[in-house]
Design a binder for these strands. Structure first.
Length: 451
RNA sequence: GGUCCCUUCGUCUAUCGGUUAGGACACCAGAUUUUCAAUCUGGGAAGAGGGGUUCGACUCCCCUAGGGACUGCCA
């Protein structure tokens, strides 16, 4: 799964790279073999692809560079910037407990001790972090953040099994890949000084760092399943458009004056890390809906047809043979009111109902003798209508309503007929969407049931 | 416990020492009306608390409170 916070981080990186004319690179940090399954990796690519964030080079898999990472550790060892620590797991646990009680970081006794006599003892390699002074992170978002080195522990670079850890791998990869800007989640801010120490130990130049705040649920707590969604895939399934998602996510933690709705081009032109807000943001579904509605209106009808078709298929809706025609006539007439593609699918249902339509008891109750007469006269009037388009239908209905004493005299009944148990748009649009034959046919169906 | 980050309407944000603190979403009211929407008009709504600095603080500094991250041989 690709978390929504990850998606925004990716978006900001993408926007910034485009803004600066730089490159947007993807690296899969898969050093944890347990967690990074092929499915998990695929989900990330899928999410990026759906969001429309294409990298400028082939993705790099961190695990494949393990040999290089070990090489870096060896060099650091030679330079004296790291040391072998022979603490057992039990000893470590004990030290951790003690350190926490004393409110200090973990210390290894092997930092200043010669290796043990027996050469076969397992060990990890730890960074030899300085004790004095402080390490300053000049963060693009948070500003200058300084840490006293004595508060930093000697983090593990190489595990006992010889595999590199995340913090080491990240630094080595960022350096080798020529990364100039590290823009990542807030949760890495306290790792940064330790990573800087690795850069310094290797004599490597520092990239610029920028730490983005997290995205919380509407209640301010960490975003989780109970908030509706946390993965990009789920947003797609809920009927959100990727361009709406980009616009929404861009506004979460970043702003450009009063601009709310903007194109990718504008976002790229305006985006600057310096303008990113330092505080965490909450997920706001109504606002996402609003943006999505806007982008659905803008969306190409053919594309919406495809999306709606997928939804209908997943719902096992029975589709008439000419469903494509029906969809293409209906979608443009109802898409104004849809906040998601799922809603759009709901709004289109009335046009797919099979004939003969059936009126339920509530609908039948609308057909008093008078109403039956009016619907009959309306059918005759409609049969003469030359053009079945919303504006013309509206005129016809309006003229009819004037003669018959208002819409209230036949509107509800006509609605029941055209909607056939689903939700339908305004009557003129419904008639236009259904077309002459279907509309008149449904009226016949109805009249034969109430007479 | 320790270190670090964060705090403007309900929400996302604008403001970069001097504004009637602006916009958007949401909400409320009205208009429209053939259901539900959509649309249009109008409205209410904010600087966490306390100290400083300053002629003047939302804005700079300190403290407190609240929220969060890290504190893994996870990433």
């Amino acid at each position: 799964m690709m978390h929504i916070g990850t998606a925004r981080t990716a978006l900001f990186n993408w926007l910034y790279a485009r803004h600066r004319g730089g490159k947007f690179l993807i690296r899969v940090e898969d050093t944890d073999r347990e967690r990074s399954t092929p499915e998990a990796v695929e989900a990330i690519f899928e999410g990026m692809d759906w969001l429309g964030l294409a990298p400028d080079a082939e993705p790099i898999f961190q695990f494949s560079r393990a040999e290089r990472h070990r090489e870096v550790v060896m060099e650091l060892l030679e330079r004296g910037g790291a040391y072998r620590c022979y603490m057992s797991v039990e000893e470590l646990a004990e030290e951790r407990e003690k350190a926490r009680a004393e409110g200090r970081p973990i210390r290894s006794p092997w930092r200043d001790r010669a290796p043990p006599a027996g050469m076969n003892q397992p060990f990890v390699v730890r960074l030899r972090a300085p004790i004095d002074g402080e390490t300053v992170v000049n963060d693009l978002v948070k500003g200058e953040v300084s840490f006293r080195n004595r508060e930093l522990d000697d983090l593990i670079l190489l595990r006992a099994d010889g595999s590199p850890t995340y913090n080491l791998a990240v630094v080595a990869d960022d350096h080798d890949m020529g990364i100039t800007h590290v823009i990542r989640g807030d949760d890495h801010l306290s790792n940064t000084p330790r990573q800087i120490l690795i850069y310094q130990g290797m004599g490597w130049p520092l990239p610029a760092f920028g730490h983005l705040p997290m995205i919380h649920g509407p209640d301010g707590a960490k975003l989780s399943k109970r908030h509706g969604a946390q993965g990009v895939r789920e947003f797609a399934d809920m009927g959100y458009l990727p361009e709406a998602m980009r616009n929404y996510l861009a506004r979460l933690g970043w702003g450009h004056g009063d601009d709310e709705i903007f194109t990718d081009g504008q976002a790229i032109a305006w985006f600057d890390i310096a303008d990113v807000v330092g505080a965490p943001a909450r997920m706001d579904w109504p606002k996402l809906n609003h943006l999505n509605q806007h982008y659905i209106r803008l969306a190409d009808d053919k594309r919406l047809m495809g999306l709606v078709f997928e939804v209908l298929r997943s719902r096992d809706v029975h589709l008439p043979r000419d469903f494509a025609d029906r969809l293409s006539r209906t979608i443009p007439l109802v898409k104004e009111g849809a906040k998601t593609v799922l809603e759009l699918a709901d709004l289109v249902m009335f046009a797919l109902k099979p004939r003969p339509i059936e009126l339920d008891a509530k609908a039948r109750a609308l057909f008093t003798g008078e109403v039956v007469g009016r619907i009959g006269r309306l059918a005759a009037a409609l049969a003469l209508a030359p053009v079945w388009k919303p504006a013309e239908m509206a005129d016809t209905l309006k003229g009819f309503a004037e003669n018959e004493g208002g819409f209230g005299k036949f509107g509800p009944a006509l609605r029941a007929i055209l909607a056939a148990g689903a939700v339908a748009p305004d009557l003129a649009s419904a008639l236009a969407a259904l077309g002459r034959e279907e509309s008149l046919g449904r009226i016949d169906d109805a009249l034969s049931q109430v007479q």
